[in-house]
Design a protein around this nucleic acid. Structure first.
Lengths: 189, 189
DNA sequence: GTCTATAGGATGATAGAC
DNA sequence: GTCTATCATCCTATAGAC
């Protein structure tokens, strides 16, 4: 069990505030106050506000990239790959629900290399997902609908799951996975 | 044909910038620059930054409230009501795609009465939708899945449609409606 | 209706004492 | 590792000239 460093605590406090108000509306003083210290003290552990954001966002982006890579190299059917991606999102949401707001809403405030690294990872992720959807349609696993509509409707649901997960109070993860997979794949009618 | 007032132009310019960077990261100077004037000149037409946000967000919230009211008082089946709601979101997205970012991401920066008015409208909207879903399940129109999962998966897709609508370059609205309804209701498998 | 000038306060970050 | 003090800059908003 690794002990949380002071830097980890700062990032946790910041994540929570970013989720509430967004990166730009949260000041270093806000983050410090949340931890019971003064803003100047934060700079002993991090180089600045930007480092908090990039640590947070790039960590999660790499988690998704890593997960997608595992799915892509597996020998499973397109349909099973989609099931795996849904479960990947649910797992990350359950483990990092506070930090996902910044990933979704504040990535554009990254700078320079961090910004381009993030955009690349995000584009690659979507492209991999798109490929799986197209393979699924070609194989006859999926209905022959516009791939973009399928991709978007699944991904937008998964990306905003963090907003809803906490509000509904910690459903059992396995039940959530089962219901979510069913609704997204088989519809509601 | 009503001519756009200077206030309308300010709100349009601000919407576009809010979509790009979020309310808090956009300054009055940014909005003025977008219009080719100085920040101080904005105050001849609006009382402040807050008024821009509240005009924008409350206008859209009322559009959704009005649309939901029409659906609720109709005599249509629960399933047809859900179809109507999907079309309502698509219509508003097509007509106000720039402004929807603020509705989704910046409403928490509203103040006092505007904030509580907004939260009330949003809660009522979700509650009406939830009622329709439950009626649909009871009537046997919808599969007997957890209503919250159904509600969330449809609503999260519809709420983020604005992010995707412009990127994919103006699909024909009627095709979009048909495909979206099919994917959300009947699934992809 | 737009401008310049500026008030009054918040912000990110640094220096140096303890 | 945290503090106080402070700097330079940016912010929203106002006053008053044109």
């Amino acid at each position: 069990m690794k002990t949380a460093t002071r830097k980890d605590e700062i990032i946790a406090a910041a994540s929570s505030l970013f989720k509430e108000k967004g990166y730009s509306a949260v000041s270093m003083r806000d983050i410090a106050q949340e931890m019971g210290i003064k803003a100047a003290s934060l700079y002993n552990h991090i180089s600045g506000k930007q480092e908090i954001l990039s640590t947070l966002v790039l960590f999660l982006a790499k988690e998704f990239t890593r997960g997608m890579h595992s799915v892509m190299i597996s020998e499973r059917s397109p349909l099973d790959k989609i099931r795996d991606i849904i479960e990947l999102h649910i797992d990350i949401t359950v483990n990092h629900s506070e930090a996902l707001a910044a990933l979704n809403n504040d990535w554009m405030h990254l700078e320079d290399q961090d910004l381009s690294d993030f955009v690349k990872m995000r584009e690659d992720y979507e492209e991999n997902f798109r490929t799986i959807v197209k393979e699924g349609i070609k194989a006859g696993d999926l209905k022959p609908r516009h791939p973009e509509v399928i991709l978007f409707s699944i991904l937008s649901t998964l990306r905003t799951l963090y907003l809803w997960y906490q509000k509904r109070g910690k459903l059992d993860v396995n039940i959530l996975k089962k219901d979510m997979v069913a609704v997204l794949l088989k519809g509601i009618v």
